[in-house]
Design a protein around this nucleic acid. Sequence first.
DNA 1: GCGGCAAGTTGAACATGTTCAACTGAACAT
DNA 2: ATGTTCAGTTGAACATGTTCAACTTGCCGC
Lengths: 215, 215
Amino acid sequence: MSDDTRSLVRSTALRLFRERGYAATTMRAIAQEAGVATGNAYYHFASKDHLVQELYLDVNREQTQAARTVLAQGGDLATRLRGVLLAGVDAFAEYHAFGGEFITVAIRPGSAASPFSPESSESRQLSQAIFRELVEGASPAVPSVLRDELPELLWLAQLGVTLFWVYDGSPGQRRTRTLIEGIAPLIGRLVRLSRLPVLRGAADDVLALVRAVRA
Amino acid sequence: MSDDTRSLVRSTALRLFRERGYAATTMRAIAQEAGVATGNAYYHFASKDHLVQELYLDVNREQTQAARTVLAQGGDLATRLRGVLLAGVDAFAEYHAFGGEFITVAIRPGSAASPFSPESSESRQLSQAIFRELVEGASPAVPSVLRDELPELLWLAQLGVTLFWVYDGSPGQRRTRTLIEGIAPLIGRLVRLSRLPVLRGAADDVLALVRAVRA
DNA sequence: GCGGCAAGTTGAACATGTTCAACTGAACAT
DNA sequence: ATGTTCAGTTGAACATGTTCAACTTGCCGC
C-alpha cells in the first residue's frame, strides 16, 4: 500500500539519520532497510533533502510541545524566551553530532529543508505561533509598538541560536546554554528599556529597519 | 611544472565557478579545461571545497583593498562600518547568482571554506584586521570598554549580513543595502548610548556574555 | 470476467566527487 | 651510462544522489 510504503520509508530514514547521520545514510540503505527499491523512495520523497525536512518536522513538533508546557506557566518575557529556546536545544540535542551535516541541508536556499522554504511552511507556522504566544502572554506586557514585530524577530533569533549550537563543540552544548541564559534576560531588559525616551529613537529605528528590509 | 599546474587548475576553477556556479562546475570540467587529468586536480587541491576556499580568498582580498580605501577617509563608527560592509557586498556581488551554493559549502563545519576553518585563517585574519582598524580609527573614539570585543562582534555581524545577502532575491541586492544603511547608524547609536547609566548595565551584560560564551 | 488506466514499484543507467594503483620523467648518486 | 627515488600525473574504479523506461498491481466501468 502506498501510504504504508511512504511512512515506512519515512520512519526508516529518520531512524538511520539518528543512528548514522546525514552523509552516512545513503538512499540505497534507506530503501534496502525499508525493503523497497531505491527508486521507490524517490516516488514518495522528491529528494534526500525532503526526508531531512521530515526530520525537522518531527523535532519541531517535539519542541512545540515542550514550549507549550513552558508557556503555560506564565512569566515575564525573559523567562518565557529562555524556556522556549532551551526547549529547542533539548529537542535538537540527539542530533547534535550530525548538526553540521543537517544545517548544510537546511541552509541551502531552495532546499526543501530550509526554514524559509514552502515545504517547511508547516514547521514555520508552528514555530512562529509559539513565539507569538510567547510575546502575547508575557507579563508584564510587551510594549504595544513591539508586539507585532517582536515574535518574528525572536523566531529569527532562535535560528541564530541554532546556528551557534551547530558550531558548539562544548560537552552537552554548554556554551549554547550559556548563550541562552545570557541573551534571554538581555532581550527582556532591552525590551523594557525601549520605553525610555533615550532608547525610544533606537527602538523606532529597529522597527523601521525591519519593515524596510522586509519590503 | 607543479606550481604552474596548480595555479592553472586554480584559475580555471575560479573562472568556471564565476561562469557556471558551484554545482555546474564539475571537477572533470575543471581538469579538462585546464588540460590535466581529473586526479591531478586532486593532487593539488584536496577537494572541491578547497577550490571554493581559494575563491573566498580572492574575494576577501578584493574587499580588504576596498575597505582600506574607505577607512583611510576617517569618519565615525557608523560611517566606517557602512563603508566596510558595502565594500563586502560589492566584492561578493558577481557571485550572488550562486551565493546559495557557495554558502552551503562555507557553512558546513569542518569544511575548508568555513570562515572558522584553519584553512581560512588567512582570510579571517585579513578580515578581522579590517574591523579592528575600523574600530580603532573611528572618531569620536569608541568607548574603551568596548574596544576589545567590538571588532570581533562586527566581524560576526558581517557574517550575518552575508547570510542575509545570500537569501536576498531583490534586484541588485537592494534589501541587503537597505539593511546595511539601517544597521550601521543603529550600531553607532547603540555604541554611543552604551555610555549612559541606563544602558551601562546592558552593555556590561553583552560583554560578559560574549566572554562567557567564548570560553 | 475483461479491458484499460493510473498509481505504485523496480532496478539499471547516469553524472559526479573522490580514491588509488600504476606510470612518467627529471634530478641525482654511483 | 645506469640505477634509484620521488614529486607529478594518469585514468579507471568506486560510492552515491537521482532519473527513467519498463513492469506490476489494484481498481473502475462495462
